[in-house]
């Protein structure tokens, strides 16, 4: 038995390296083809049009109105679903009462329901012959084909995001820090602001980011309830869709002016979103 030492080139560790490398390569390749390639594709298409198409498209009054409308809907949705989302999260994470698990099932429901169905739901509720239609029309309040229904459907779709991000954080946190704060003389409100909110802030922010992204990008539900009236109920995504429809030549796909505009708008939005929507 010689005591000569050598650095072993382990077959085991070589195999491990091969396995790791292989799996990593598969993961990167999949994400590359599926996610990164289309991003590059749109960047290429957007840049090809040049800067003038961007400014031309974005200065059209319809386009400006569409973006403003999207902004309004998003702002209302984010505020309501963040505040009330935190309340629901507190109840789901901390409270115990019969029906609580049913409650969390309902929270997840919007994730499973097609936005298109959400739109149909709103039509069934507020449209002609709908449950609430007589009450609102008697008071002259327009719900369908107007801002209220667009906000409502967007809110419905965005409900889960804040709640699902905040609940696990609250559960992991426990109540010991809050109990400590209250023994030190903090009121419930002070405890919430200075201990609870501080601890959930990253989860909450991520939830808000997801809500914002989804609210801006929502199309299926809004398409059905809005009527897509140019200059009135047309959001940014609806504008993009109309631009596509107008220049839609199946199989040809000529790069008409409107189409390039769409690419520009879409490209910019994508750029916005990738910067702003990610934690």
């Amino acid at each position: 038995m010689s005591t000569e030492l050598r650095t072993p080139r382990l077959s085991g560790s070589a195999r491990r390296l091969l396995v790791h490398g292989g799996f990593t390569a598969i993961a990167i390749l999949y994400v590359g083809v599926l996610v990164v390639a289309p991003l590059i594709g749109i960047a290429w298409a957007a840049l090809r049009g040049g800067l003038s198409t961007w400014t031309a498209t974005l200065s059209q009054p319809d386009v400006v109105h569409a973006y403003v409308l999207t902004g309004i809907i998003t702002a209302i949705t984010v505020v309501v679903s963040s505040v009330l989302g935190v309340v629901v999260a507190l109840v789901v994470a901390r409270d115990r009462f019969p029906g609580r698990s049913l409650m969390s099932a309902f929270v997840d429901l919007p994730l499973a329901v097609s936005p298109v169905i959400v739109g149909v739901m709103a039509v069934l509720l507020f449209g002609r012959g709908g449950w609430f239609e007589p009450w609102f029309s008697a008071r002259g309040i327009q719900i369908l084909f107007a801002l209220p229904s667009m906000v409502l459907v967007t809110m419905f779709i965005c409900i889960p995001f804040v709640i699902r991000e905040v609940v696990p954080v609250l559960q992991e946190l426990g109540v010991s820090e809050e109990e400590a704060a209250s023994t030190l003389g903090a009121s419930s409100w002070q405890t919430f602001l200075r201990v609870t909110l501080k601890n959930i802030r990253w989860g909450l922010l991520y939830g808000i980011a997801l809500t914002t992204a989804r609210a801006i990008g929502e199309i299926g539900a809004v398409l059905i309830v809005s009527g897509s009236i140019t200059g009135k109920t047309e959001t940014a995504t609806l504008y993009i869709l109309r631009a596509f429809d107008q220049n839609h030549r199946p199989g040809l796909d000529r790069p008409a002016r409107g189409y390039r505009g769409v690419q520009a708008a879409g490209g910019e939005e994508a750029a916005d979103m990738t910067c702003g929507g990610i934690r």
């Binding site: 038995m1 382990l10 085991g12």
Partner: peptide, 23 residues
């Protein structure tokens, strides 16, 4: 045990060298 690979050195169990064997 073979859970980590040595930087250098050798391991024997009885007459069998283990250094290059997997876990």
């Amino acid at each position: 045990a073979g859970l980590d690979a040595p930087t250098s050195g050798r391991i024997w169990m009885g007459d069998e060298e283990q250094t290059f064997k997997t876990v």
